[in-house]
Design a binder for these strands. Structure first.
Length: 423
RNA sequence: GUGGGUGUAGCUCAGUCGGUAGAGCACUGGGUUGUGGUCCCAGGUGUCGCGGGUUCAAUUCCCGUCACUCACCCCA
């Protein structure tokens, strides 16, 4: 009998670890909500041209990493490789930028890139992201970065750092690009790198090979060739971050893989992860709205990798999320007791208490073991003797203390026990 | 797409210098016929990734292949 396996490179989260996944995703989303970002749920696939034009024709993401296929109507569609293009498309399509600006949106979900999987790099990756469109105030750049930082701290991460730079804009980048190319052409580079220098020269700055790094010792840097406007914008972003207490380091050689970035660009890095050390990143994309056919509005946002945050937490030895499957575990001895506890379970669930019940024909010891494994704070044991007395046994699983409560008061007694942590 | 590593029980792995295999964890029951966590006892499962070669005999050696994994590239 042939068996099935999940597609290559796709992580799955099931209990008990799914609790941490949910907790990280929701905590990051909470950080976004705290700053006024409204949730947007987007299609998981879009017209291929949206990404080709939005992300950039020359990027690796577009040229070799997209899940592209023809639908039954022979339209070319692509599983979303990132979130920003879809958000911007939706903003334009629904005129979300006609109201008060900036439009502030956040999202969460799976993204897809056809890459060779390795530690921390998956073909289906989970991101939480935000986009703020329509205002180019440097205070907004600082806010976006601070929201990411707050999110990481809220999930309990400590060992990460923030790298920051400015990529300039359409006024100063073309001149710098030409300057950089001129510099690179004089270097003894291999063919592949030479080709990259012509196509996307900024990408060469990111080369990790020591011999290439050595050649680049005196390479001209964008931050030294920013126009006055970009210079001031960048300085003010840094000023706001300092006032916010968000620590950062300038990395003038930072390169992002998506073409739409302008001006402020940042990346959060965690050193406990191995080769794939970026746990989140983003930046400003002041030309994307116009590029995709909308009003020429600025924008800035980030994408945070939920999978990599989970790996980072693991590397730090930190845990997050409640792995207990219920608050109360009900243990019936006999059919009459079970009939009664099934009803109690329903009543408790209506009251918002997480309840599980021992099913199957296990002995008391086995059912109590089930109670222990469930992580429940307390257990209700109901047998024939209790039933005859009109009572039940309520046991605190931490202290081991057990007391008798009238069946009539059971629901409120359990609510109380679960609420204040003592039976 | 290119390299290295690894494929043995549900999981983590040991092992067989060639004679068809074990431990821990997990699970179930019992010790305790109405009480979990610690302890003790008992219980089961494997086409040893797949295909071929050498051999009396291959899970072991050889070749191929697939999968997983780490890394390059790139990114979350």
């Amino acid at each position: 009998m042939a068996t099935f396996a999940a597609p290559k490179g796709i992580p799955e989260y099931y209990p008990p670890t799914s609790a941490a996944f949910i907790a990280v995703r929701d905590t990051l989303l909470r950080a976004c909500a705290l700053a006024g970002y409204g949730y947007i749920e987007l299609p998981v696939f879009e017209e291929t041209a949206l990404y080709a034009r939005g992300v950039g024709e020359s990027t690796d993401v577009v040229t070799k990493e997209m899940y592209t296929f023809a639908d039954r109507g022979d339209r070319s569609v692509t599983l979303r490789p990132e979130g920003t293009a879809g958000v911007v498309r939706s903003v334009i399509e629904h005129g979300l930028d006609r109201g008060q600006l900036p439009v502030k949106l956040c999202y969460a979900g799976p993204f897809f890139r056809y890459e060779q999987p390795q530690a921390g790099r998956y073909r289906q990756l989970q991101q939480v992201g935000i986009e703020a469109i329509g205002v180019d105030d440097p205070a907004l750049d600082a806010e976006v970065i601070a929201v990411a930082d707050a999110g990481y701290r809220a999930v309990g991460l400590t060992g990460y750092r923030l790298e920051l730079t400015s990529l300039g804009d359409e006024n100063c980048r073309p001149a710098y690009r030409a300057l950089l190319q001129e510099f690179l052409r004089k270097l003894p580079l291999d063919d592949a790198t030479r080709q990259r220098a012509e196509l996307n020269p900024l990408r060469v700055l990111d080369d990790k090979r020591p011999e290439v790094r050595a050649l680049l010792a005196d390479v001209p840097l964008m931050v030294d060739h920013l126009c006055a406007e970009c210079r001031e914008h960048f300085d003010r972003v840094k000023g706001y971050l300092t006032e916010l207490g968000v620590k950062f380091a300038e990395n003038p050689r930072m390169v992002r893989g998506l073409d739409y970035y302008t001006r402020t660009t940042f990346e959060f890095v965690h050193d406990g992860l191995g080769a794939q050390s970026g746990i989140g990143g983003g930046g400003r994309y002041d030309r994307l709205m116009a590029e995709l056919g909308g009003e020429p509005r600025s924008g800035i946002g980030f994408g945070l990798g939920v999978d990599r945050v989970l790996l980072s937490l693991q590397a730090e030895g930190t845990s997050i999320g409640d792995t207990a499957s219920c608050d109360v575990y009900l243990v019936p001895l006999g059919d009459a007791a079970k009939a009664r506890l099934v009803v109690v379970a329903g009543a408790l669930r209506s009251a918002g208490v997480r309840v599980d019940l021992a099913y199957g024909g296990k002995g008391l010891k086995g059912m109590m073991r089930g109670a222990d494994r469930s992580g429940a704070r307390c257990t209700v044991v109901l047998g024939e003797r209790d039933l005859a007395d009109g009572t039940a046994q309520l046991k605190d699983m931490v202290t081991g203390e057990q007391r008798t409560v009238p069946l009539a008061d059971l629901v409120s007694a359990v609510e109380h026990a679960v609420g204040d942590g003592s039976a």
